[in-house]
Amino acid sequence: MSSNSSPTAAVQLCYEHLNGSCVKTPYSPASRVILYMVYGFGGVLAVFGNLLVMTAILHFKQLHSPTNFLIASLACTDFVLGVTVMPFSMVRSVENCWYFGQSFCALHTCCDVAFCYSSLFHLCFISIDRYIAVTDPLVYPTKFTVSVSCICISISWILPITYSGAVFYTGANENGLEELSSALNCVGGCQIVINQNWVLVHFLSFFIPTFVMLILYCNIFLVARQQAKKIENISSKRESSSDSYKSRVAKRERKAAKTLGITVIAFMISWLPYSIDSLIDAFMGFITLAYIYEICCWCTYYNSAMNPLIYALFYPWFRKAIKVIVSGGVFKNGSASMNLFSE
């Protein structure tokens, strides 16, 4: 997931004293500061937000469950992306040059694609987990066990890393585009071209999990509403004056709907621009401007930064755990056994 530096403004070069240096299109000082702040905030949020989530789940015994292990693995994926990919992408995006060498360019691209799709697969498995929990709660503990969670985690890590390494380290992504790749190969650039076949594979790798998530979340929403109505009906039959109870049920329903809505909307906003742009770009001769491509890339990065807020910090027990971590309470004896679900 790397961009092309625009060659239209031949004012500066990435390496002024080297022949064959890429052309640099600099931003104004004010624009650079703003971009560094925006990109840097996403990186800091991805690193420290996901680090808090991992610490909370691993430290507090009450959070040791198959579902939370899957969430912790998601946080680990986004944390690694924030540490190994986003800082270098930030420099590339703002400076319009790659100063870290061609060997690291290939590794950076491989890690970029692998960790982004690993995060996507985690989100898909989480939606499957929540679908089973809502639609079949009685047998859910026997269906989604620690072993099943470990299998989901393994698939979410191994498949994207294997796929990314196989595509970019074998050069399969450049088949049929050798001349274009050679023309873009200048000193200070990290231009990765992807042919139409692999762009289709990329798009399907995004579309299929996304389609599964949308279907499952729609079903979850419908089932949650039906269950809330049943609870409300049962309560009204037992107690004639149950307005307060109905209010609590309605509040939980609205909260569940809000959570699902935020999850789907944030994911779609983050991933759709890059996926659509990559597909169109490959079939239209790579016409996307560099800054537009960078915006699309950072939208996907920001999804990893938002995941802690959507999947963890939204819930009261996670907020309580993070307060304990930030205040240093985790260093006290017995903190791992404290009750996070008490009011």
Rank of each mutant, 00 (worst) to 15 (best):
T210V: 10
T300D: 04
R32K: 14
H64I: 06
V223M: 13
L107H: 05
S21P: 00
P141A: 14
L184H: 09
K143G: 03
E253M: 11
D281S: 15
M1D: 02
L204Q: 05
L52T: 02
W298C: 04
F168L: 08
I153A: 09
E95R: 07
F207H: 06
N233F: 14
Q196K: 15
L18N: 03
I231P: 00
C152R: 00
V44Q: 08
E178G: 05
T300Y: 03
I208P: 01
F267N: 05
H108K: 10
P66H: 14
Q196F: 05
K237I: 13
T77W: 05
H59D: 05
I231G: 07
S5T: 07
S236K: 14
L214C: 11
A228R: 09
T263S: 15
C218K: 15
I231V: 10
S241N: 14
Q191R: 12
C299T: 10
Q191L: 04
L216N: 01
L204V: 08
F203D: 04
T210F: 04
S278D: 05
V139P: 00
L52P: 00
S182I: 08
Q226I: 13
A282E: 01
S205R: 09
F48D: 07
C97W: 00
V139L: 10
C124F: 08
M213W: 02
F144Q: 00
K332T: 07
L52N: 03
N303H: 14
E95S: 12
G188Y: 01
S65W: 03
A72V: 02
V146G: 04
A321M: 03
G188N: 03
W271G: 00
C218V: 09
I310V: 13
Y301M: 08
W298Q: 02
L120S: 04
N68G: 08
R248H: 11
V249C: 09
V330F: 09
S93D: 07
V139S: 12
N339W: 05
H122P: 01
M90Q: 04
S342C: 10
L204N: 04
G49F: 03
F318S: 02
S21E: 01
G165Q: 06
F283D: 04
C152T: 05
S236G: 08
Q196T: 09
T109G: 12
D78I: 01
T288V: 15
I151N: 07
S242R: 09
C116A: 15
F41A: 15
L214D: 02
S181W: 06
F286I: 11
C14L: 05
L260S: 12
W198K: 05
N333S: 12
L313K: 03
S21R: 00
K237W: 07
I287H: 12
F115K: 00
F115W: 07
S247N: 13
I234W: 10
N219F: 11
R225L: 12
S147H: 08
P137W: 13
F211Y: 11
L313I: 12
L107N: 04
K246Q: 14
Y302D: 06
S28K: 15
L45R: 07
G42V: 05
R238Q: 10
Y291S: 13
S241P: 01
E95N: 04
V94P: 01
C190D: 02
V167L: 14
D129A: 14
A166M: 11
S236Q: 14
A106W: 03
R92C: 06
S127P: 01
L279P: 01
S93A: 15
C218T: 10
V85A: 07
M268T: 04
S89M: 09
K258I: 08
Q227E: 11
E16H: 06
S65G: 08
D243F: 10
H17D: 05
L52M: 13
